[in-house]
Design a protein around this nucleic acid. Structure first.
Length: 531
RNA sequence: GCGGGCGUAGCUCAGUGGUAGAGCGUCACGUUGCCAACGUGAAAGUCGUGGGUUCAAGUCCCAUCGCCCGCUCCA
């Protein structure tokens, strides 16, 4: 673990040092969960988005039948009519009800707390409750069954997971006999006073249930009252659903088709963590693919495979990438199937993208809340239906971070005197590299800077290029290695004689001599950047 | 939110209550002819922030903010 920790620290340090990612508003101490992208970072992130847009909207892979599929783009507002979020379930469901214990300072999700009434030896209720933490009523009841008050043994798998000191104590003091299991949320005010919280010594320490909504509030207009309350979107998906009819009515597009969007989303995460991985402001790249209900499974498979392949094609091929299908009990209420594209970051395996079969849940909700007809009429089959939706939903920042982690490498290269030295290099896929090429004069004299600048200017319109004439060329190479620049072009003494320059490859550090005219250079670079 | 660790130059870090430091990096000039070169010089610090103790605080105490790890959370 310390090794991985060191690795992540190195990556964070490099990201700052080379201008990939800075803490947000750093001069004021930063802000938890917010990050800024520097000059190299913004190019990396833009390349990720451009690659996605190109490969998903403008030139998606052929469909399951080998024919072109229909995809269009969209860019909708971040703030929408708040009814959107009532329909989507975010106003009600995205808000976790939390309850805090005044004694232990522990905070619990109220819907994960269950209480069991305590009985005396003779069987009579004593009017007190013990609270336990469980994900479901089944689990709570299982705990109750498996807990044997006589032996005082807690089933091994729950030790540490559940804090049941008080429960055990009841077994000793009162001859604990289990009663029924109830939801904590069903308790009334006087019953609340009789509850022993997990880990607590005293009863009645669980206070009011408070709603923690993960959506950021804002107000539209100058008057800040309930009628002007709105939200920063917690996902871009809903903007697609509410525009689904517009797209159908204005583009002559037919089902099956997809709408894609890239944009910022905001979630007031309880605990942002792991560099940019879980941020409160982040960018999503989402597709909503609308299809006939009978074809939903087919399209789910299609997107699941296509999206995994996309990450592999862009460099995540070290075995740290994996596809994980959700188990039935793990599925959200709106999803029939879901798979996560996961990447093994130095801090652990985490989700880059989720591909879900959302059925007709969202369109049905918006049909219900808006009163608008969301059905689709198929002219050929004369069939009217509510399309089902396959949603590949990825995080731009998470993808960029994964590409950065994957690219990070340390190897050895000989120095001036042939001694091996450690080298830090970002082996980005050329398509994602912030800078494609750097141009150097070998030394700052004999007309080399002039020639190099000429080449630099000729390349700039075609790709991100960088010019550097300061210091030893070896140092300039290494600096570009740290930025992940695939190629370095160097003008040297021979250039004046025969018009050739050297091109140095980032990964192999090998050099080739080629012509220095723009056409030759561009052809050479384009050929190799395509890989 | 809880527990632990850490906040000193752009980065990595040293610093025993008594003048704010090193290496790397950055910049300038010179040198330099292919893989983190050398010389000279320079810039760069609210020692996270706010209180307190003290003749004197980067150092001790309290609070607070941020970062990291674990737990928790992550429809």
């Amino acid at each position: 673990m310390p090794e991985e920790q060191d690795l992540m620290e190195k990556i964070v340090s490099l990201a700052k040092r080379r201008g990939f990612i800075y803490p947000s508003s750093e001069i004021y101490g930063g802000l938890n969960g917010f990050w800024d992208y520097g000059p190299l970072g913004v190019e990396l992130k833009r390349n990720v988005k451009d690659a996605w847009w190109q490969d998903v909207v403008r030139s998606p892979p052929a469909g399951p039948d080998g024919r072109p599929i229909r995809m269009v783009g969209l860019d909708c507002s971040i703030i929408m009519n708040p009814k959107v979020w009532e329909a989507s379930g975010h106003v009600g469901g995205f808000a976790d009800k939390m309850v805090e214990c005044s004694e232990t300072k522990q905070r619990y999700r109220a819907d994960h707390l269950w209480v069991q009434e305590v009985h005396a030896v003779g069987g009579a209720d004593v009017g007190e409750f013990v609270a336990i933490v469980a994900q479901s009523e089944e689990q709570a009841k299982r705990l109750e069954r498996e807990y044997d008050p006589r032996s005082m043994q807690l089933p091994e798998q729950y030790e540490g997971q559940l804090r049941m000191k008080r429960w055990k104590r009841w077994g000793v003091d009162r001859g604990f006999i289990t009663g029924g299991t109830r939801r904590f949320l069903t308790l009334n005010a006087s019953e609340l006073q009789q509850v022993y919280a997990p880990d607590a010594e005293n009863k009645g320490t669980l206070g009011d249930v408070r709603a923690f909504n993960l959506m950021f509030d804002t107000y539209v207009g100058a008057m800040q009252d309930s009628s002007s309350k709105a939200y920063l979107r917690p996902e871009t998906a809903q903007g697609i659903f509410v525009n689904y009819k517009n797209v159908l009515d204005t583009t002559r597009i037919k089902v099956p088709f997809g709408i894609a969007q890239i944009g910022k989303a905001f979630r007031n995460e309880i605990n942002p963590r792991n560099f940019t991985f879980r941020s409160r402001e982040f960018e999503q790249m989402e597709i909503e693919f609308f299809c006939h209900p009978k074809e939903a499974d087919l399209w789910y498979q299609y997107w699941r495979d296509a999206r995994l392949k996309w990450y592999v094609d862009h460099g995540l091929r070290s075995g740290k990438l994996r596809l994980r299908d959700h188990q039935a009990e793990e599925l959200a209420h709106y999803a029939r199937a879901c798979a996560d594209v996961e990447y093994e970051f130095p801090f652990g395996v985490s989700e880059l993208e989720g591909i879900a079969n959302r059925t007709d849940f969202d369109l049905a909700q918006h049909q219900k809340f808006s009163g608008r007809d969301m059905t689709y009429f198929d002219d050929e089959t004369k069939e009217r239906f509510l399309p089902h939706v396959i949603e590949p939903s990825g995080g731009v920042d998470r993808a960029a971070l994964a590409f950065l982690c994957e690219a990070y490498a340390e190897d050895e290269a000989p120095d001036e005197s042939g001694v091996m030295q450690r080298r830090t290099v970002l082996r980005f896929h050329p398509r994602l590299a912030p800078l494609k090429v750097a141009v150097f004069p070998l030394v700052k004299k004999d007309g080399m800077p002039e020639k190099a600048l000429e080449i630099y200017q000729a390349l700039r319109p075609h790709m991100t290029a960088f010019y550097d004439e300061k210091g030893a060329v070896g140092r300039r190479y290494r600096r570009q290695d740290e930025a992940g620049t695939p190629f370095c072009i160097t003008v040297d003494g021979q250039t004046r004689e025969d018009g050739t320059v050297t091109v140095r490859d980032r990964d192999s550090m090998k050099q080739e001599r080629i012509g220095s005219d723009a056409a030759t250079l561009l052809a050479y670079l384009r050929e190799r950047l395509r890989r």
